[in-house]
């Protein structure tokens, strides 16, 4: 598998305090990867290590197949910081020109890319205003434009919609989807679980500096799957068999609810009902939400 990001026991300590510990992640190219965790869990610490703002205490990582810090990989990487600040005395256009210079974009590429990213983030017509006159949402859009400017193969977005209204958030989701369609890899730090659920292929959850879950979103959400079924012809043996298969089983007349370990047990439920001579009228797997998964994994941090 061609990996955009690969970390191997990546660790960052701040004195005696752990920022991140033993982070082992693999993000395939072309995926949208969601990185979740409560405040202070280490999400931004990991991103900052990967983009070169922090020096890891231990471990290794590769971006786009090259070691951390490699200049060639950096040229193909974009980054929107959580704290998105740009020189307030510059205009939007000047900021983009400045970043184009930092990414060594030639004049032809600049002329083509700058209007394109301005349009992508919805700032066309505002580029001659000074950043000090921008709203917070506009500054975040400008930051996204800077991240997209070099047409990166890998892009890190740290809370990319924190300052945007619902329409703006939808626009960012569309941008992320377009990036994925273009074969780009997106690493998304976000508190907005609904947003992550809508755009991400894979997620990892971090708690107190350590990964507590990592995998394809669909697989993670199918763990502890709640299922509703309607059966005619319940027998004690059938109830016992379903209770044995599940971690939680309740029945009221014809309807029952059970909690399965994963989607793979769904077919077994149907098999058991039929094997015990009952009639199966409906078998509906519940859609577990990312929020429920998050709460289960993180618990009550307070």
């Amino acid at each position: 598998m061609d990996l955009a990001i690969e970390t191997n026991h990546l660790t960052k300590n701040f004195g005696s305090k752990t920022g991140c510990a033993d982070i082992c992640l693999s993000v395939p190219r072309g995926h949208v990867f969601g990185f979740l965790g409560p405040n202070g869990a280490g999400k931004s610490t990991l991103v900052k290590m990967l983009v070169g703002l922090l020096t890891p205490t231990a471990g290794r990582a590769r971006l786009l197949g090259r070691p951390l810090g490699d200049r060639a990989a950096r040229r193909r990487t974009g980054f929107l910081p959580e704290l998105f600040r740009y020189p307030d005395w510059m205009t939007g256009r000047e900021v983009l020109d400045f970043y184009a210079g930092l990414y060594h974009l030639d004049a032809v590429t600049r002329r083509r890319r700058i209007p394109l990213v301005l349009e992508t983030v919805g700032l066309t017509g505002r580029e001659k205003q000074r950043v000090r006159s921008f709203s917070k949402g506009m500054q975040q859009r400008l930051g996204l434009a800077c991240a997209l400017l070099p047409d990166p193969d890998l892009i890190f977005l740290d809370e990319p919609t924190s300052a945007l209204d619902p329409l703006g958030r939808r626009e960012v989701r569309e941008i992320i989807s377009a990036l994925k369609s273009g074969g780009k890899t997106v690493f998304l730090n976000s508190h907005l679980l609904g947003e992550v659920e809508q755009v991400c292929d894979r997620v990892a959850v971090i708690r107190k500096g350590r990964i507590v879950a990592d995998g394809a979103l669909e697989e993670l959400l199918s763990v502890n799957l709640e299922v509703s079924l309607e059966v005619e012809g319940w027998t004690p043996e059938l109830e016992a068999a379903l209770a044995h298969l599940s971690t939680g089983f309740t029945r009221v007349e014809r309807r029952a609810r059970l909690t399965l370990a994963g989607r793979e047990d769904l077919a077994r439920v149907a098999e058991l009902v039929l094997a015990h001579g009952a009639r199966l009228y409906s078998l509906v797997p519940g859609q577990r939400s990312l929020e429920e998964l998050f709460v289960d994994l993180i618990g009550n941090e307070n």
């Binding site: 983009v51 070169g52 703002l53 200049r71 950096r74 040229r75 980054f79 910081p81 704290l83 998105f84 600040r85 740009y86 020189p87 307030d88 970043y99 930092l102 990414y103 060594h104 930051g143 800077c146």
Partner: peptide, 14 residues
């Protein structure tokens, strides 16, 4: 202090 360092240092410039 302005917060502009994060975007700046993350670019390919040494």
């Amino acid at each position: 202090e302005n917060g502009t360092v994060y975007g700046l240092v993350a670019t390919p410039v040494r």
